[in-house]
Design a protein around this nucleic acid. Structure first.
Length: 726
DNA sequence: GCAATGCCTCCTGAG
DNA sequence: GAGGCATTGC
């Protein structure tokens, strides 16, 4: 046996060697579960002589999958070409493309992301005359998503669940939405899972094929699987029953998107004679950090009771820091980061800032820019959801999938072709008459009677453009295709003007996309010996996330949500915005189950830290136009007091800088004042909001906008003509 | 009939 | 702080 196995502890070795029958690994945070899975796969292949072709491993991110692959290749010299490692979604997409003949889709179907879903649902609701004020589209979207994750089709929903006015409306939208997707040859993320389960149910031959293929199945992060995913695993494993799931009920943080903690809690019931292996030795964090984490999570009821332990040294106390507002918080963190890298000679890659909501990243971004600290934001506006990236991808999608009307509409008048809503509306009517896709309708545009010859010409030109690129797509590899496209459309010069928060332009983003396509081309060529074309590229690009894209070769601090931090570790971790209302989030305080999930999220965040942990909270936090005054998170009170030390507003230096900034702000506003009527500090009165004090003044064209603190406690921005001085 | 402008709203979390 | 939408401007 390879000596690499000897590095594992006893329980880990048991995970590796228990290859036959169902296995439940209860792996605590930092207990080396990824290591165990990698060794288990290696053991199956090198010792048990199982063909990689018979193994399926499901990970939470594509990045985790790639890391596993490269470890298998480097440490164990195992070729991973025929091994299936990936996320549930990528595995399902792969199956559905292979088996598309049994589906109402062709293999080049488009995957619609959350934004596409929004647009489609809004459009459908408009068509059905459903008020989007009364039924919020995003609520409708998540309701539909919830049904799919629980494997309820629109037909079934329509029949069995329409007992109220609301559910009847929902049934209508759900039906129209699914029909629209089929018409566009597209699926959303939930469909990927849903259609696989359905396929397995309806077509026993296909199911058997995959049951025979996957003799050994491993699922990571099992605590975050939803019903559809559970069902996929269950069906695939039915024949050989060699299903090994790894998870930690204390780290289940995706209940809100259908993940069911019950899946892991009831594994032993679902799989007869399952072997249960706990991994409770932590190799990541210092003793104090671990003790703090244990003390917090012990407040949860719904869990397998267990306590992590470590042989590591005791370490430093956790620093809990109170600050006045979010700006001061960002300055404090920036300052501390500078101290850490000076004193300890650590790399910025070893440092992470974790927050509950994406919106919190902004202050840190601008402060880090100021302080010259390299950073990268993970998540938030996903790279592939950026407007400029979606524009390019829409061109590619319409080439690959001509039935994709969504992408067509996105680009038909971008760059501007003098085709406005009226003309496009007429084209849509025309396509509907002909019962063809918008793309196809262009080919008959001559026959359309509603359009002037001038407009027809423009559509004709667009048609010619698409035709020429459809030809190119067949012969050119993706990097050349994309390069040509970006050049022809002059996208870079269009986007050069538009600057983003980070100081980069949209053109830079497009360049990055082009570069990533180049990289994809060369990697793909290495693996398969030929350059990838459009379809190969699109198949993977829809499922890439920000985490997958992170490149640790560039030295920078990571900024991300607590959710995104799952599975990662850093020497120095800052948990910021630790306030009641943020963590636990205000929407999750009332219900006990939700509160426990928030606690798990906090627990996950704490356990990311290896060396030092900072927890900060601000007394006052700006939210759009008003200010929130929050108390420190209740979870801070739950941390064992022996493991923490408090710093209360003693950060004089940053505090002074903050004060200076506020003064500059005041002067600045004063200078903008034109009518001299209002000044910072002026007392005013407003018809509906009552009395208040002017905090700031901004000019917008001829109008001056006043930021006013009303006596009611609300802070609002109001145009000066609506208030009177008192 | 298209394009530019200004206002409004959004922010829990993500594949 | 940016996209979506309605209104106005050309």
């Amino acid at each position: 046996m390879n000596e690499l196995y000897l590095k594992l502890n006893e329980s880990q070795q048991e995970v590796v060697k228990s290859t036959e029958g169902p296995v439940l690994v209860l792996a605590g945070a930092g207990s080396g579960k990824t290591l165990s899975i990698v060794h288990r796969i290696a053991y199956l292949i090198s010792e048990k002589m199982v063909s990689p072709w018979h193994i399926l491993a499901v990970t939470f991110t594509n990045k985790a999958a790639n890391e596993m692959k490269s470890r298998l290749e480097k440490s164990f010299k195992i070729s991973t070409k025929s091994l299936w490692i990936g996320t549930f979604h990528s595995m399902c997409a792969r199956i559905l493309r292979i088996e598309s003949q049994y589906l109402p889709f062709s293999s080049n179907f488009t995957i619609f992301d959350a934004n596409d879903q929004d647009t489609i649902i809004k459009k459908i609701m408009k068509n059905l005359n459903i008020s989007s004020k009364q039924f919020h589209p995003s609520k409708v979207k998540s309701a539909i998503s919830f049904q799919k994750n629980n494997l309820i089709s629109w037909q079934e929903y329509e029949q069995n669940y329409t007992d109220s006015f609301y559910t009847k409306i929902l049934a209508k939208v759900y039906k129209a939405y699914q029909q629209y997707l089929v018409k566009n040859n597209g699926m959303d993320f939930d469909d990927l899972l849903f259609y696989v389960v359905n396929l397995f149910k309806k077509n026993s031959k296909v199911l058997e094929k995959y049951q025979n293929k996957f003799e050994y199945i491993m699922i990571d992060e099992y605590q975050d699987t939803n019903y559809a995913q559970y069902k996929i695993v269950y069906e695939l494993g039915k024949k050989y029953k060699n299903v090994c799931v790894v998870g930690d009920d204390d780290q289940s943080i995706y209940g809100w998107r259908g993940a069911d903690i019950y899946n892991i809690l009831s594994f032993e019931n679902d799989y007869q004679n399952a072997k249960v292996i706990p991994l409770v030795q932590n190799y990541r964090s210092t003793r104090l950090i671990l003790k703090a984490a244990n003390s917090v999570i012990s407040n949860n009821r719904a869990r397998h009771k267990k306590e992590l332990w470590t042989k590591k040294h005791i370490g430093n106390r956790i620093k809990i820091v109170e600050l006045d507002n979010e700006n001061e918080e960002a300055m404090y963190v920036a300052q501390k980061i500078k101290e850490i890298i000076c004193d300890n000679n650590v790399s910025l890659n070893d440092i992470a800032v974790l927050y509950r909501t994406n919106a919190q990243s902004r202050v840190f971004e601008s402060e880090f820019l100021n302080a010259n600290i390299n950073y990268r934001v993970i998540g938030g506006i996903n790279f592939y959801q950026r407007k400029e990236i979606k524009d390019v991808l829409a061109y590619l999608r319409i080439l690959a999938n001509p039935r994709d009307n969504e992408s067509f509409l996105r680009i038909v008048n971008f760059p501007k072709r003098h085709l406005g809503n009226v003309s496009i509306g007429k084209l849509i009517d025309f396509a509907n008459q002909k019962a063809v896709s918008l793309r196809k309708s262009l080919e008959y545009i001559e026959q359309c009677q509603d359009l002037s010859n001038n407009i027809k010409d423009k559509f004709q030109k667009f048609n010619d453009f698409l035709l020429s690129y459809e030809k190119k797509a067949e012969i050119l590899p993706i990097n050349e295709l994309m390069n040509n496209l970006v050049d022809d459309l002059k996208l870079l010069s269009i986007y050069e003007q538009q600057e983003l928060v980070s100081g980069e332009t949209r053109a830079d983003m497009v360049k990055e996309l082009v570069a990533s396509a180049e990289e994809f081309t060369s990697l793909y060529k290495d693996e398969f010996g030929k350059k990838p074309k459009l379809n190969e590229y699109l198949q993977q690009v829809s499922l890439i996330t920000d985490i997958d894209r992170t490149d640790s070769s560039e030295n920078s601090v990571s900024l991300m949500t607590m959710h995104n931090a799952k599975g990662l570790e850093f020497s120095y971790v800052f948990i910021v915005g630790a306030e009641d209302g943020l963590i636990p989030h205000k929407n999750s305080i009332e219900e006990k189950a939700q509160l426990e999930e928030e606690r798990r999220l906090f627990y996950v965040s704490i356990t990311r830290a290896k060396h030092d942990l900072y927890i900060t909270y601000a007394n006052c936090r700006r939210y759009y136009d008003y200010y929130n005054f929050n108390r420190a998170s209740r979870f801070i009170d739950e941390i064992d007091p022996d493991t923490v030390e408090y710093t209360n507003k003693q950060f004089e230096r940053t505090y002074q800088i903050a004060k200076k900034k506020i003064n500059i702000c005041k002067e600045h506003s004063a200078n903008l004042l034109t009518n001299k009527e209002f000044q910072v500090g002026s007392k005013i009165i407003h018809k509906t909001f009552g009395k208040g004090t002017v905090l700031g003044i901004t000019k917008n064209g001829a109008k001056a906008k006043l930021t006013i603190a009303f006596e009611s406690g609300r802070i609002k921005k109001i145009i000066d003509s609506f208030v009177e001085k008192i």
